[in-house]
Every structure is written in structure tokens, then in C-alpha cells.
Design a protein around this nucleic acid. Structure first.
Lengths: 106, 106
DNA sequence: TTGACATGCAGGTATTTACCTGCATATTAG
DNA sequence: CTAATATGCAGGTAAATACCTGCATGTCAA
């Protein structure tokens, strides 16, 4: 997994909005996704390209149209690598902090 | 939650490395975290500041030292908002894609 | 107090990013 | 074929980012 590409792709409100819109209605064209986005089509194209690079979006051409679909796999991998790991240690981490604040110096 | 700050903070390999090192040994000082990082202390300070801004790291001063602790809460919130939502729709999304590829046009 | 140490703060530069305009290509409908 | 439509590609500018150097502040130990 390319954590860098996935996180960078998610680190932009426009791109997260695009994912949300695809979540509401999957398989939209570029034109549909551009509507109400308050930015030029070319800008949205770049954002979608970044999402595609991160494998968060897959596309299928249909004639002159390009349909966009969410791919949930990278998000699941992010969860496995970055969330579960920390979740597991959550209690012990909070314990460390509490201990430290109490002045118990190693 | 400030998804923007959290994702931007995670969208850098140095910052993810810092989180990993804190996961191995929580409560390290700035100096300890800088070791073997192949960058100036001031750069690492900036990265840690970004992690702190995103609430992914909490700090406690102890004399002239500053101790850093992981805060797993924002990661859990990211999971709740961005992973579970898509996980729930995973199967239906894959179904949409399959249907689309089969040429079943709306 | 003084020297060593840990961190903070102020800038400066090069790269990356986000957005745009303008034009090219490809598909469909008539 | 031709016009309308959907998307692709090239490039240019302003802002954000990542890194640095240099110096200031605060703490500890002797």
C-alpha cells in the first residue's frame, strides 16, 4: 500500500467531498462530479486523478464518458495499518500518560 | 474533528515515522525523536508541531525537556467517519462496478 | 553563577500544490 | 459530414510546504 498517496489524497476537502458524492451515487461521470463544485472542470480532473493514483477511485470509459467508482480497499488497509495498531495500544498509552503526569519518572 | 489537519499530518512519511517511534516507546523527548531522523532538529520540531496541531500527539513539559505522547483518538474518529462508512457499502459498491462493467446502463 | 544542554523562534529558499486559461481529441446525434 | 458534448493535455501563477541556518530562551548540575 502507498500510504503516502492515500493520505495525501484524503488531505484535501475537495477530494473528500468527491468521495462523499461518489458514496451517495456511485459511477458518476466527470461532468456530474463537477457540478456545484465551485471550481473549473480541469481542477476537478486533477483531484480525481490524484484519487485514482491513490487507488481510491477506479474509472471505466463508456464512449465519450468516464465513470468513477469508489474503491474502499485502500481505506481498509489504512485502517489495518494505522488505526488498529494504535487502538490496540490505546489503554496502555493512556496509562503511560497518566503515569507520566503523576511525576513517576522512569 | 478536523479531518483536514489529521490527514495532512499523516500525509508525510517523516510524521508517520515519528508516530511509529512513539508507538514503540511512548513519552520520548524531542531530542530522542530526532535521532537517526536524517534531518535538522528544527525540521522535526515543525513536524511534531503539525502532529500536535492535529491532536495526534500530546506533550508534557518536564523541566527543560518536552515529552511526546501519542493520542489515538483522532485516528479512531477518522476510522469512524471515513473507513466504516465505506466498509458498510463495500459489497454494494463492488456490485455497482460489476453491474456497470457488464454494460447494464442505469 | 556558569557552562552544557534541551528547546523555541525568526527568517530564507526550493519544491510542491491548487487553481486557472486555452486548445486538442474523441464520441455521439442529426 | 458537422455541431454539440465529454474529456484530455499543456502551461503558467500564487500559495503552501519542507527543509535549512542562526540566534534566543530556559533549565540543570557543579
Amino acid at each position: 500500500m502507498h500510504a503516502d498517496k492515500v493520505f495525501k489524497a484524503l488531505a484535501d476537502p475537495t477530494r473528500r467531498k468527491l468521495l462523499d458524492r461518489l458514496c451517495e451515487k456511485n459511477g458518476q461521470t466527470l461532468g456530474q462530479l463537477c457540478e456545484n463544485l465551485e471550481m473549473a472542470r480541469q481542477s476537478a480532473t486533477q483531484h480525481l486523478g490524484i484519487l485514482e493514483e491513490a487507488n481510491l477511485v477506479s474509472t471505466v470509459r463508456r464512449g465519450r464518458e468516464k465513470l468513477h467508482f469508489i474503491n474502499p480497499v485502500p481505506l481498509h488497509e489504512v485502517y489495518e495499518r494505522w488505526v488498529r495498531k494504535f487502538e490496540r495500544q490505546r489503554l496502555s498509552l493512556l496509562h503511560d500518560l497518566k503515569t507520566e503526569l503523576e511525576g513517576d519518572r522512569e
